[in-house]
Every structure is written in structure tokens, then in C-alpha cells.
């Protein structure tokens, strides 16, 4: 009898732990679908909170942290004027990125996001921070592309950086248009490893291409 109870218990425990995975997958995909509904800083904050919550439970998963950091980076871009607020959002993103690098040190997407984060720091005060953070952002993109030369997000961030710096360097921003068009055309060829993997960035490239016309 005891054996039976024990085996039931074992089955139950393993059922519960297996159930974790579908629950994780389901919660993640539900939460990810909310990106399309986000309109302002508060929306991204609520969404970031959700990812934070999932990350608290799933301590070995890097994706919840990734999206948590991503939300806070977007918040800093959306904040219209207050530099202190922008930096405080990025402070939060930074903490998640540090953990991300520990959790998934060989993941190309992690460094692409880190690069995006540096761009966030840069735009708070381009005059004072431009040189330092463009270098850091460039380094992170380099790491990302070394791990996965096809990563379209890394390519997009690099392209945006080059276009942003062009007027300061005596280059025509439009000279990057062929690259942008090529990136957009090949965007869908890149298949994320799973449905939960990052897939953002196409809109930004579409924006660049639009600017070319």
C-alpha cells in the first residue's frame, strides 16, 4: 500500500514538474502576445512586471529576464524628457542584462539586447555619452554577430548606429539604404529557435527603408 502511495506521489510530483513546462510556455506566449497592446510607458511597465514575475519563478530561464530588460529599455526610449527617469529605467534593465549574461553567455540575442541597452544610455545625453556608449554598443553587437552572424536584430542595431552617427562623420545617411533594404528583404529568412525567442526589430528596419524613399 505504502508503495502505491509512494508511486502515486512520485507520479504526481513528476506530473507537476512536467506541467511546469507547458505552463511556462503558455504563460510566456500569452505574455508575449501583450506586446502588441502596449502603447505607453505604463503598459510596458506592467508587461515588464509580468516578465519579472515569471523570471522570479523560472530561475534558470533567460527569456523572461530578456523581455523584462527589453521592456525597460523601451520605456527609457518612450519617456519624453526626464533624463533621471530614463536612467532609472535603464538601471533596472542593466540588472537583468547582467544576470542574462551569466545565464546565457553564449546566446547571440543577449548581446544584441545589451547593445540596444547601450544605445538607450547613449541617447539620454548624446553629447557627453556618445563616444563611450557608441563604442560599448559596437562591442556588444560585435559579440552578438560573432555568436550568430545572421542575427537580424544585431544587424539592425548596428545599422541604426551607423545611420545615427553618419551626420557627425560626414557621411550621407542614405548611403546605408541598400544595406537596410537587403536586411529587410532577408528578415524573414531568419528563423528564431522557438516561438518564445526574440523576433522584434523588423518594424524598425521598415522605418529605415521608408526614410530612404
Amino acid at each position: 500500500m505504502k508503495k502505491i502511495i509512494l508511486s502515486i506521489a512520485v507520479v504526481l510530483v513528476s506530473l507537476v514538474s512536467m506541467a511546469q513546462k507547458p505552463e511556462f510556455l503558455q504563460t510566456m506566449s500569452e505574455t508575449l502576445s501583450l506586446f502588441s497592446t502596449c502603447k505607453n510607458v505604463a503598459d510596458y511597465q506592467a508587461l515588464g512586471n509580468k516578465f519579472q514575475m515569471i523570471a522570479n519563478v523560472e530561475k534558470s530561464e533567460w527569456l523572461p529576464l530578456y523581455y523584462h530588460a527589453y521592456c525597460y529599455i523601451l520605456m527609457s526610449f518612450m519617456e519624453p524628457t526626464d533624463a533621471t527617469k530614463k536612467d532609472s529605467y535603464l538601471d533596472i534593465a542593466e540588472k537583468s542584462i547582467v544576470k542574462l549574461i551569466e545565464l546565457a553567455p553564449n546566446e547571440s540575442e543577449v548581446y544584441a539586447l545589451q547593445s540596444f541597452y547601450y544605445v538607450g544610455r547613449l541617447v539620454v545625453d548624446p553629447m557627453e555619452r556618445g563616444q563611450k556608449f557608441s563604442a560599448l554598443s559596437g562591442q556588444a553587437v560585435g559579440k552578438s554577430l560573432a555568436l550568430d552572424p545572421a542575427n537580424p536584430r544585431a544587424k539592425m542595431i548596428k545599422l541604426q548606429g551607423d545611420i545615427g552617427a553618419a551626420p557627425y562623420m560626414g557621411l550621407d545617411p542614405k548611403s546605408f539604404c541598400p544595406q537596410a533594404k537587403e536586411l529587410l528583404a532577408s528578415w524573414d529568412n531568419f528563423k528564431p529557435k522557438s516561438a518564445l525567442y526574440p523576433s522584434w526589430g523588423k518594424e524598425q528596419v521598415e522605418g529605415i527603408v521608408k526614410g530612404c524613399q
Binding site: M53, I54, N56, V57
Partner: peptide
């Protein structure tokens, strides 16, 4: 305080405070 993260520790159950 809007935007506060309210959740049950160790679960996916949570929400954020509204405006």
C-alpha cells in the same frame, strides 16, 4: 502608485496597479 508589480511569490499569478 500606478505600475506597481503585485504578485504571489513562486507563481505566475500577478498584476500591476492601474493609474
Amino acid at each position: 502608485l500606478p505600475g506597481a508589480n503585485v504578485y504571489l511569490q513562486g507563481t505566475y499569478d500577478g498584476t500591476s496597479s492601474n493609474e
